[in-house]
């Protein structure tokens, strides 16, 4: 009797122990399920409805998507995304790689310099945006300072120029992220076998040839990760644009995320806003899914 009692007891305790992790995790699983995946599905549904200021459920099929691609601002947003995304990714990768190679030369005070490069990453994009907004403002920023030094004809007013404003966003975003990319590349560089570098030295490889033929090709995984991180940051970039130019001058620096926000919440075109959100999500998925797929496949 007593024996079977303890057995039953232990059985219950064991079951509780097995269940505990699931119990603890289930609220967050539920929350993620509702607020991430649930709302993704909801947005997807809304993009096929005639929602305006509030969600409504009148099915209109692909109509919103049709409208979306006929709106000039969306066109600008896509063009800007291509310009911004390409420049941002390319410059960040090049600059990050250069900084990493520079830091890899066993220079002194490396830890200090590395920290300095990484610090911008610790700021929020809002802070970066505001700081660069002042910095680039012709009235108080670089232009004013250089003119103050006596170079009266110096002009640097890209932020006020609708053709050039998008490049100021590139500058600020690169400033913020290239240190992070550098850290990724530096980790990759440090992972390269030192005997291999010695072998290359004996083979007579110049520094250029060493990096071009041997080191950089081995950084492929770091490039992949950097690309994926930067690409999705580019596509969903919102706060930096809002803080730096607020989409202006005019709609010159509109990007898909600011477009989505303004159509959904200020212009009472929730259906069209939702469809633009879906397009953004599909773009990100188009980048991340192949990446995850190749990563997970390699693990096997």
């Amino acid at each position: 009797m007593a024996i079977s009692d303890t057995v039953r007891h232990r059985g219950a305790a064991d079951r509780l122990r097995d269940l505990l992790p699931k119990l603890v995790l289930s609220p967050s699983v539920a929350l993620v399920g509702i607020f991430v995946y649930g709302f993704i599905l909801f947005t997807l549904y809304l993009s096929f409805t005639d929602s305006r200021i509030l969600p409504s459920f009148g099915w209109v099929g692909w109509q919103n998507y049709g409208f979306l691609f006929r709106i000039r601002a969306w066109d600008t947003a896509l063009t800007n995304l291509v310009i911004f995304g390409t420049l941002y990714i390319v410059i960040c990768c090049l600059l990050g790689l250069l900084l990493a190679i520079f830091l890899d030369q066993r220079i002194r005070a490396e830890g200090f310099i590395r920290t300095i490069y990484l610090y911008p990453m610790a700021l929020s994009f809002i802070v970066t945006g505001v700081a660069w907004k002042w910095f680039l403002d012709p009235g108080i920023g670089v232009e004013a300072v250089v003119r103050g030094w006596g170079f009266e004809s110096f002009t640097f007013d890209w932020i006020k120029d609708s053709d050039m404003a998008i490049y100021t966003i590139v500058i600020a975003a690169v400033w913020q992220t290239s240190g992070f990319v550098m850290a990724m590349f530096l980790a990759g560089l440090r992972g390269i076998d030192s005997e291999m570098l010695r072998a290359a030295e004996i083979d007579g490889a110049s520094t250029m040839a060493l990096y071009r033929r041997i080191v950089i090709p081995q950084l492929r995984p770091a490039f992949m990760s950097a690309f994926v991180v930067l690409a999705h940051m580019a596509i969903k970039s919102y706060d930096l644009v809002i803080a730096l130019t607020n989409g202006g001058p005019g709609t010159a620096t509109e990007v898909p995320a600011t477009f989505m926000y303004s159509y959904t919440f200020t212009r009472n075109q929730m259906g069209i806003g939702a469809s633009s959100a879906v397009i953004m999500m599909l773009t990100i998925a188009a980048i991340i899914v192949p990446y995850l797929w190749s990563e997970l496949r390699e693990k096997k």
Partner: peptide, 21 residues
């Protein structure tokens, strides 16, 4: 004199082959 100009060749313990080639 640099290693490449010494007319020597070396084989390493870890082989040190270039994995990307």
């Amino acid at each position: 004199v640099k290693p490449a100009d010494r007319n020597i060749a070396m084989v390493f313990q870890s082989y040190a082959l270039y994995p990307n080639m």
